[in-house]
């Protein structure tokens, strides 16, 4: 039996680099996470929304009182756009790192799902969509505060809603790369210290990028958060942002490439 031609055939192996296969089953993963979130929504929202909101209020009024107009805006209005972007980034990042890692590695939720008729592609897609959804929640929550403060009086600010989703998808995908590589939670400190925090500091969240030395401006110009802020700030001021296509393309490009890398790494880690 073992000698017949069929049993000796070597299987044409699917490359881990194959393109993602998207299916609506990814939404089952999204729904699972949504159901958990509904139970823990209050502490979850506090972390993702109250924290950046307090920073925005305290720095915006406290520090802002000492400052002249920044880029032609009162400091709190300047800071509001940056806060929406970085809280969106942070929410997606936390979800794609700590929460997704718990489900992948600690609770073995991904393993359980893989025994059902879902693929790893479905799971990673569902996780990215979920992390982006959560960042949408926190982006919108901050936007509501900004609106209540009277800092958003143009309908153009509604464009910040799809922007938050795009920024969420971009950083969720980047975060999932780190998760797929992580041996333990401690590993995430590298990403936060070396990537997330510097990005928050040099991408125009708290002060204009133009304040930085040239070399640091060059670094900033290739980071995705810079491009998010570049769209968000004019929108919040009621203006039409310049070079929208470029900024959207950078965010989408980071997101798509990162998503594929995250998926390849997850396939190598789990489907072996």
């Amino acid at each position: 039996m073992a000698a017949d031609a069929q049993s000796r055939r070597t299987v044409a192996r699917a490359s881990p680099w194959r393109l993602p296969a998207f299916s609506l089953r990814a939404l089952h993963v999204w729904r699972r996470n949504f159901l958990v979130w509904r139970k823990l929504a209050i502490p979850s929202m506090l972390g993702n929304f109250a924290d950046p909101a307090f920073y925005m209020l305290a720095l915006g009024y406290g520090l802002g009182g000492l400052l002249p107009a920044v880029d032609g805006l009162p400091y709190i209005a300047f800071l509001a756009a940056g806060t929406i972007c970085y809280s969106t980034m942070n929410t997606a990042t936390f979800e794609a790192l700590y929460s997704a890692f718990s489900r992948m590695h600690v609770q073995r939720t991904w393993d359980a799902i893989l025994n059902a008729p879902l693929s790893l592609d479905d799971i990673v897609t569902g996780e990215a969509l979920w992390a982006a959804t959560k960042s949408l929640f926190s982006g919108v929550a901050i936007l509501v505060v900004v609106w209540l403060l009277g800092l958003a009086d143009s309908w153009r600010v509604l464009w910040l809603v799809p922007l938050a989703l795009l920024v969420g998808l971009c950083f969720a995908s980047l975060g999932l790369i780190v998760t797929a590589l992580a041996p333990s939670y401690d590993f995430f400190m590298y990403y936060f210290t070396l990537v997330v925090t510097p990005m928050m500091l040099v991408c125009g969240v708290f002060f204009p990028v133009a304040q930085l030395p040239d070399w640091l401006q060059s670094v900033s110009s290739v980071l995705p958060l810079t491009h998010a802020v570049a769209i968000a700030r004019p929108l919040l001021a009621g203006e039409v942002p310049g070079q929208v296509l470029l900024h959207v393309a950078v965010l989408a490009g980071y997101g798509l490439v990162a998503f594929h890398i995250a998926l390849v790494l997850a396939r190598r880690r789990l489907l072996r």
Binding site: Q107, R108, T109, A116
Partner: peptide, 26 residues
Amino acid sequence: VVPQVDSLDPDFTVSENLLVFGRYFG
């Protein structure tokens, strides 16, 4: 499938575990 290592969803109750798993099968 009954896997070797426990993979029940600790975020859910007993019934929710069954409900969510059933959704995975459509």
